[in-house]
Design a protein around this nucleic acid. Sequence first.
DNA 1: TCCATAGGCAAGTATTTGCTTGCTAATATA
DNA 2: TATATTAGCAAGCAAATACTTGCCTATGGA
Lengths: 113, 113
Amino acid sequence: MEARRDVFQAIADPTRREILDLLSGQPLNVNTVAERFDMTRQAVSLHVKILSECGLIVLRQQGRERICEAQLDKLREVAQWVERYRQFWEQHLDSLEQYLDHLQKQKKHGRKK
Amino acid sequence: MEARRDVFQAIADPTRREILDLLSGQPLNVNTVAERFDMTRQAVSLHVKILSECGLIVLRQQGRERICEAQLDKLREVAQWVERYRQFWEQHLDSLEQYLDHLQKQKKHGRKK
DNA sequence: TCCATAGGCAAGTATTTGCTTGCTAATATA
DNA sequence: TATATTAGCAAGCAAATACTTGCCTATGGA
């Protein structure tokens, strides 16, 4: 459970997405994060490690606690990649809209069931 | 190499992102896609299978060829997820801008090095 | 000072990934 | 019809993933 420190890889795991979600609300220490999940502290700790290694969260020591704070700048990379293809789904939405419009008009001119 | 058919998982692999990129330009058959990569046809074929199973590409049989066509609607899911955190990186950009502005002003009022 | 709490490290396991080689089937073309 | 091309299937493999259990070290409060 190591080696790849890439944002796309990091957010591929649903648990890690949940952790980010949790931390986007407020910073939490490792154990508190772990409590929210149905797995051992170690498992969560590893996810936290991966997230921090790829820069999506920042860890700061506070006494005996390690506070995890979301640092979501790196998500911009993902946003930019996806953005390149926005036209593809918007195009499809457009034709769906047109189709619904078409249905709407058909409904207006007679044959109301 | 199976089991998970999830968009986030699908785009986690750089080869698969490249395949999508390639196909967003124009539809291609499996072998043509495979030629662009430095790995066996089988390996690419598996990536294509995964992409089609999670709905990011559509396969259509044409004689003995299988044409792969990008179908990027599913990326909206990713876009929406990332969008929720846009404020986080834009916020940071803002404070960076403010900081740069600050520097700029400092430069103007005297002490030009 | 003693003990509970926070949390890291290491080893072990099952499953999934990413890729290979070898083979077969179907469709085109000479 | 014989041959080349497209592409799937199956088995095999090393590495990575996603976990676990067990242990050990700090820090902080009673």
